[in-house]
Write a protein that binds this DNA or RNA. Structure first.
Length: 425
RNA sequence: GGAAGGGUGGCCGAGUGGUUGAAGGCGCCAGACUCGAAAUCUGGUAUAGUCGAAAGGCUAUCGUGGGUUCAAAUCCCACCCCUUCCGCCA
């Protein structure tokens, strides 16, 4: 959420940002709502002031056993108006916030202006694409043949977009989770957390999924929502809190399953592990000092890249253009891993700086020592990494002519030393 | 699910419907004392909105939302959360 004060003072910047994003928002009602809100608030304040003063005088008169009837009668009228104004102000505030809540974040100045993913800019490429003496297969075929991925039975159990992992497949997924958490906690300095997988609406509002993107979420009969990413529960750890400046940046990593309804993605990535209703992810979250958050974005992206490097998976980093960025983000790097079976780069991590957009919604602040003021922190997060898609990348990059798949060396200790997954006899 | 108790400032904790944004204490910050520190003393220590060039003023906030009243932390209702006990349960 943007600051209404900032908006009134920076109308041009906002209009440009919205245009760059390809979003259309009529700003006029916003200013009208704000003026209305202010007008009502001023009225309310002055009437309350009168009430406060007069009620003291009434108390004094009554103490002195003097007649206060006339004054009470007068104040009864004021009270009526005050009672009306209360709901009017609440309504004005709610309407203003409703309008504010659906305005996307302002892109950072370093973000390229563009329409869609075709305008994203490649920043760097790491690793060498593997060369095969045969036509590389796609992961779902490999996984089914190896008996480690069972899509048919998952469909029987749950429906489309679910996967049953078996044997070394299940173990590989678990190994990756442990490996990623170990790297982030032992080498990159993140605190491991294990948050709830169901959250309330307030948390989803804090990170920006609500109110605009409710259709993407699974909701329970108890009005909880299944988390679409660990970003939601982890970022909300400090909702409504004021952190100490010297604690920043706070760095946390969490493994969670993620649940997405994938409404509107019919026909997209229908095969395999790429797009699921439920998938595993290790997430990185940072609460940073606003003056240093862009350094933190770089290092967070590097932390995620490190996993791919250790696994020996080729990837590239792209910066998303204004038109392709998420609603809450000010700048996003996508890390795309190379998938030889698909002959394509596919997103395996998305690292964003939200600046104070989420922090304002969730009221996450810190006490700045120098100014003695409370300021909003900057929140950042990124996948470190999407686990299912990492399995995809390993299967496709490490496949061999006979259909077996080698295991990257760093993972072998997590798999009881297994070096290759082979077809069952 | 049933029963009981409880939610007040960074923390602890008082609070008979009427100068209570809220006693007292702890903590924190600044100053005095000291060669320095501790102890002691003095002062300051919330957030947001609004008016103002500023100093500062005004308003709101005692779990949340409503109600009663000229006036609510204080009375009434609903909800949320926490604790304990019972039931159920991994």
């Amino acid at each position: 959420m943007l600051d209404i004060k900032w908006i009134t003072e920076n109308q041009k910047a906002l209009s440009k940002a919205l245009k760059d994003r390809g979003a259309t928002v009529d700003l006029k009602p916003l200013f009208a709502l704000n003026d209305e809100r202010k007008k009502l608030q001023i009225q309310f304040d002055s009437l309350r002031n009168e009430q406060n003063q007069k009620s003291q005088e009434i108390a004094k008169l009554q103490k002195e056993k003097k007649d206060a009837k006339e004054m009470i009668a007068a104040m009864q009228k004021v009270a009526v108006r005050v009672r009306q104004l209360g709901p009017e102000i609440t309504q004005a505030e709610e309407e203003l916030n409703k309008t504010l809540a659906v305005i996307p974040n302002i892109p950072h100045e370093s973000v390229p202006v563009g329409k869609d993913s075709a305008d994203n800019k490649e920043i760097r490429v790491w690793g060498k694409k593997p060369v095969f003496s045969f036509k590389p297969k796609e992961h779902d075929a490999l996984g089914e043949t190896l008996g480690i991925l069972d899509f048919e039975r998952a469909a029987k159990i749950s429906g489309a977009r679910f996967t049953l992992y078996r044997g070394l497949g299940a173990k590989l997924e678990r190994a990756l989770i442990n490996f990623m958490l170990d790297v982030h906690t032992k080498e990159n300095g993140y605190e491991e957390v294990l948050p709830p997988f169901m959250v309330n609406a307030e948390s989803l509002f804090g990170t920006g999924q609500l109110p605009k993107f409710e259709a993407d979420l699974f909701k329970t009969t108890t009005n909880h929502y299944l988390i679409p990413t660990a970003e939601v529960p982890v970022t909300n750890i400090f909702r409504d809190e004021i952190l100490a400046e010297e604690k920043l940046p706070v760095k946390m990593t969490a493994y969670t399953p993620c649940f997405r309804s994938e409404a509107g993605s019919y026909g997209k990535d229908v095969k395999g592990l790429i797009r699921q209703h439920q998938f595993n992810k290790v997430e990185l979250v940072k609460f940073a000092h606003p003056d240093f958050s862009y350094n933190e974005l770089e290092s967070l992206t590097n932390d995620a890249e490190k996993i791919l490097q250790k696994l020996g998976l080729p990837y590239r980093v792209v910066v998303l253009c204004t038109g392709d960025m998420g609603f809450s983000s000010a700048k996003t790097y996508d890390i795309e891993v190379w998938l030889p079976g698909q002959n394509a780069w596919r997103e395996i991590s998305s690292c964003s700086n939200f600046e104070d957009f989420q922090a304002r919604r969730a009221k996450i602040r810190f006490k700045e020592t120098a100014s003695r003021k409370n300021r909003y922190v900057h929140t950042l997060n990124g996948s470190g990494l999407a686990v299912g898609r990492t399995v995809v990348a390993i299967l496709e990059n490490y496949q061999q002519a006979d259909g077996s798949v080698k295991i990257p060396e760093v993972l072998q200790p997590y798999l009881d030393g297994v070096g290759v997954i082979t077809k069952p006899v």
